[in-house]
């Protein structure tokens, strides 16, 4: 067979595949509707779970990154001593940013917090009992305990504070939230795969006769498979499109409202992250349709 004839046949087959896929989409209307609908609902629920995970992660991270260490220094240190301590702190692993807070600055902040009428300065008798301090932000909030421990051992450091106890509890809580939301997402993912596989199997069952007739007249496996795969891709993509659209609009509306009411609660509204997520869901829809029809058609090819 010459190459040209072969290519012509390939072209014909491709044409046939598209014709058959669209014919079957037309003719098996309600079943396809069910399959696409199932995909849409599954991906929608899955999308909610993913958004939940993304947001809990984001909230946890925001809360965690607010953790800071206060380092109070001994009184009467020389400038050089302080510089040395600063360098030491800056080289401690996990430290992102160190800020010096002089005792004057600390007193001013304190006075502001007490209010103008408090006469803090008068009651202290013009002296400043506060120590000089460093405020440390961490790049790795989880290393806060070990960093604090090593800093407290430095000479010239009087005391280290980072909300001991509370921070550990908070980390435990965020870890649990992450774990649970991941588990929920995984479970929903498995559920949607089963749901979609069942629906596609139903579609196939309705068409097993067609498949077996094709095999009897001498169709190759791939010839039988292609239209079904294309159909699966189209149905998966359609379902995913609906899911993404509904999810996108409702998430946008919900988070906008949430930011009005609970302004302190950090939610992910970075559209790049969201677009990436929606692309993922779309790809998942296509993948589910493809894999679902591949598995389902496989059962009826054994003729």
């Amino acid at each position: 067979m010459s190459t040209r004839v072969f290519m012509l046949m390939q072209l014909r087959t491709a044409l046939y595949v598209f014709q058959e896929a669209f014919r079957s989409l037309r003719r098996n209307g309600w079943l396809n509707f069910a399959a696409a609908g199932t995909t849409a609902v599954s991906l929608f629920v899955l999308g909610i779970a993913v958004l939940l995970v993304v947001n809990t992660n984001y909230i946890s991270k925001t809360v965690e990154s607010n953790v800071e260490i206060m380092v109070y220094l001994d009184r009467g240190l020389e400038q050089d001593d302080m510089k040395a301590i600063r360098t030491q702190i800056e080289t401690t692993p996990g430290v992102k940013e160190v800020r010096f807070i002089s005792k004057e600055e600390a007193l001013a902040t304190l006075a502001k917090r007490f209010g103008k009428e408090s006469k803090l300065n008068e009651s202290l008798g013009g002296t400043n009992p506060l120590p000089d301090a460093f405020r440390i932000r961490m790049s790795e909030p989880r290393q806060v305990a070990s960093a604090a421990a090593s800093i407290s051992r430095l000479p010239g450091v009087e005391k280290v504070r980072y909300g001991q106890g509370v921070v550990e509890k908070m980390f435990k809580l965020t870890a649990w939230i992450r774990l649970i939301s991941m588990a929920v997402m995984g479970l929903l993912g498995v559920c949607s795969v089963f749901l979609i596989a069942t629906t596609i199997r139903l579609t196939m069952f309705a068409r097993r006769r067609e498949i077996s007739i094709m095999k009897w007249v001498g169709a190759t496996d791939w010839f039988v498979r292609w239209p079904f795969l294309l159909e699966g891709i189209i149905l998966g993509a359609a379902g995913a499109l609906v899911a993404v659209a509904v999810l996108g609009f409702s998430y946008n509306a919900l988070t906008a409202k949430l930011q009005e009411v609970l302004a302190f609660l950090p939610v992910v509204r970075d559209y790049r992250v969201l677009i990436q997520l929606f692309e993922g869901l779309f790809a998942a829809g296509i993948g589910l349709g493809l894999v679902g029809s591949f598995i389902s058609v496989h059962r009826y090819l054994r003729v």
């Binding site: 012509l8 046949m9 014909r12 087959t13 046939y16 007739i213 094709m214 007249v217 001498g218 169709a219 010839f223």
Partner: peptide, 10 residues
């Protein structure tokens, strides 16, 4: 249908 299956042309 039987002809399409074996790759016959229109």
């Amino acid at each position: 249908f039987a002809m399409q299956v074996v790759g016959a042309g229109p």
